[in-house]
Design a binder for these strands. Structure first.
Lengths: 221, 221
DNA sequence: CAAATTATTTAAGTATACTTAACTTTACTC
DNA sequence: GAGTAAAGTTAAGTATACTTAAATAATTTG
């Protein structure tokens, strides 16, 4: 049985392992899931016993195809819910993450496929992350760049954000820094890595901590 | 903390106790929740300890205002989800009960209020059951009658059904016997309590077991 | 390369939510 | 009112998913 806990462990292992390439350590998993390292050891043994992961004591965790399948299915549910809540229920993008975090665990494949269909099989969620299709394939090709690489006097649009904390999302909403929104880089400050940008004719200073979590696409005119 | 189990226990206690009037027995609860009678004793002690119910050993269970509040909140979530899935996602009424049974436990008050608003504060769900408002009040006045009381050559419309089993709901869907649908009683057979009705110009025989779970309103012309 | 530090696991204990089996209470019948 | 059947509880045990504290393995550093 795939309980809520197991689904969250597998999602975290999949994310931290970046697909299935990297080994995931107990410490990083414990931090991600907000549980003790002892809890990780225990659950790792259980998940390994059920064929979801490969677990070598003191070495690390690697997701197996069975675990990957479940993780992607949960991610798919999460992202489709987020988009659905924004598009069909009018929630704002900083409100949907926590709701989707719960809904992803109590949605049947039947229902999520109906939602996928209703949204006309979208490719990305409201944060710009790709939505896997029914078969678990991410078809979107990454062609974005970190906002850190932006140069002065060029226009960009925001393609993806990499943080879901309330504070971060709420700040972006407040300055109307939404997905696909265009902005111009006015000034780049070398000494602290911060960026002065103009959006909707209003200028904002963004710290390095903010911009390293934002991914953009250059707009060529 | 209100876990999924606790929510289901309170929902069942509220339903079997018909609001808060009747004492609920361990046996009936065990049957409703598909667990052993021993499990009922244990959970009853826990719920009583937390002030959700009044529990007198060997006597029975009675819901308290704290428990009633939680039960109604879960029922509200269930019924709003059902209507939402039918109205906004196009699921059929026999598909929504099982989905709502899961979603009701992982929906915040914030989200369900958004759904309520989106549906324009509906009064009944797709089975005709009343939806409590944000304050927990059921405002709908019951003016339906059991289908058993139907008489020959009169027209009725279906107002509410009292069973959520897949077989029952699928059969009603199949013969297009949907909420608010009009039908005429052609013949009433006294010996087995069955009813011959006409719906969309097609005649159907409905057994007593079916009609006792259907509630109707007479259409006067 | 040995010592120290960090990472990880094991052990023991807790809470929830179940089970079956044994026992007790209540209700019913003669 | 005693005997019995049904209803309900208690006791003991299980699985999941955590915790803290102690022990062990791996890695880093002098």
């Amino acid at each position: 049985m795939a309980t809520i806990s197991k689904e969250n462990y597998l999602k975290a292992i999949y994310t931290l392992g970046e697909g299935n390439s990297k080994l995931v350590s107990s410490t990083s998993l414990a931090k991600e899931l907000n549980v003790s390292k002892a809890a990780i050891s225990e659950m790792a043994s259980r998940l390994a016993g059920q064929g979801f992961i490969d677990y070598k004591k003191y070495k690390g965790i690697k997701i197996l195809s069975k675990g990957k399948k479940l993780a992607i299915s949960v991610i798919r549910k999460h992202r489709l819910w987020e988009l659905f809540l924004v598009d069909s229920l009018g929630l704002s993008w900083d409100e949907v993450h926590n709701e989707a975090e719960k809904l992803e665990h109590c949605t049947t494949d039947f229902l999520i496929d109906k939602i996928d269909e209703h949204l006309k099989f979208p490719k990305t969620d409201p944060h710009g992350d790709p939505i896997p299709n029914k078969n678990g394939d991410f078809r979107t090709v990454w062609n974005d760049m970190s906002m850190k690489e932006c140069v002065e006097n060029k226009s960009y649009s925001i393609v993806r954000v990499n943080d879901r904390s309330d504070d971060f999302m709420k700040y972006l909403s407040k300055i109307k820094f939404l997905l696909n929104k265009e902005f111009i880089v006015i000034e780049k400050l070398a000494f602290d890595g911060s960026l002065k940008i103009e959006i909707d004719k209003i200028k904002h200073m963004l710290s390095e901590k903010i911009i390293e979590n934002i991914f953009v696409r250059e707009i060529k005119n």
